[in-house]
Amino acid sequence: MLSDGRFSARGEIVRSPIRPTSMPASPGSFAFMDPPEHTRYRKLLTGQFTVRRMRLLEPRIEQITEELLDAMTPPTDLVQAFALPLPSRVICDLLGIPYTDHEFFETNSHHMVEPSVSPEVRDAAGEALFGYLHDLVSRKRAKPGDDLVSGLITDSDLDDVELTGIAIMLLFAGHETTANMLGLGTFALLRHPGQLARLPEDVPGTVEELLRYLSIVQFEVNRTALEDVELGGETVRKDETVLVSLPAANRDTFERADELDVTRSTAGHLAFGHGVHQCLGQQLARIEMRVAFGALFKRFPNLRLAVDPGEVPLNVGRGIYGVARLPVTW
């Protein structure tokens, strides 16, 4: 379905079963567009997210990781001390955002996805982020650097509104998803000590299984039929919207799928989606997780929960699943 041209991601026609209000994609928000509009933006960004460029970031990611681990003292909330600041600092570096402003964008991006906040607060958060990043784009246009936004300014004819839309999407996707994977992934490993014991042998394999097993993108993938389509023995009528459950897909296609097994082959998992909308930053996310999980458990081999597992608060009802806090000690 995710690679079927008879289904559309266009924001103005998608009516999610979870969020029934549809709206057109803002300039630059190519995740909610179809080709050829989507293709135009995607091609520009593909050049900025090459595997080579992401690997060149690895020493910086390692440096940030070590600095955060150096600053940790037991007991601590791993989300605030490690899982959130690591991807936040990386995406700030990538986009050319001063990290001194991290609390501003972390708070506002959180308000944009937190179901308990009012629509007014959510809208105000979106406007605040847009204003901040629009100013950033203007400064980069006047004085480019070696960051991704400056690269897009130099290599494209995108206007400031389009660049701001892209920056908002990358800023949100670049820290919110990885932060939740780091927190929830650590929680999962601490609850499965037998699997955690295998981590040093195969960090990349462990990361891929955590991606499959946790599948933190819950409700964000929706497609609308452009014509009547037979799907799984059902008829999806033209203009009807289907919610694509990536967590369900990552259960349906693997043996013993409800078990965390870091030794399994995870080829074909859909944690990053599939088709033309597959996650653009997946290689960066993989590098961050490999570095973070490897360094965290090497530094603190006796890391453990500081509370009963049932007391760990989960982020529920949001498009991205995770732990709100993760009290740990060592």
Rank of each mutant, 00 (worst) to 15 (best):
T164H: 01
T186K: 05
F105H: 02
Y213P: 06
E106M: 12
D146P: 08
E120R: 15
E103Y: 08
D157A: 01
L184Q: 02
V149N: 03
G165P: 02
D160A: 13
L214S: 09
H110S: 08
G194D: 11
I153Y: 10
G165S: 01
R191T: 01
K140F: 03
S150W: 05
A125K: 11
A179D: 02
F130H: 14
H102A: 14
G205L: 05
S118V: 06
E201I: 10
T177E: 08
S109N: 14
D160N: 05
A197Q: 10
L190E: 00
G151V: 04
L196N: 10
S138F: 05
V121L: 12
N180W: 01
V161L: 13
G183D: 01
G165I: 02
V117S: 13
T107N: 05
K140V: 00
S109A: 15
T100S: 14
P144R: 05
A125E: 09
F187E: 00
L184P: 02
F104M: 11
N180E: 04
E120M: 13
A124S: 15
E106C: 15
A128R: 12
V113K: 08
G183Y: 00
S215I: 10
M181D: 00
P115R: 06
T186F: 04
P144V: 05
R212L: 07
G145A: 06
L214E: 06
L171M: 09
L184D: 02
F130Y: 14
V203N: 10
Y132S: 03
S156Q: 00
R191V: 00
T186G: 07
R122F: 04
E114G: 09
E176D: 13
H175E: 11
R191G: 00
E120A: 15
G145D: 09
G145L: 07
Y99L: 12
H110V: 06
L170S: 07
K140I: 01
R198H: 14
V217S: 09
S150E: 02
Q195G: 05
D160G: 03
F104K: 03
K140H: 06
E106A: 15
L190A: 00
A142G: 01
L199F: 12
D159S: 10
R122H: 10
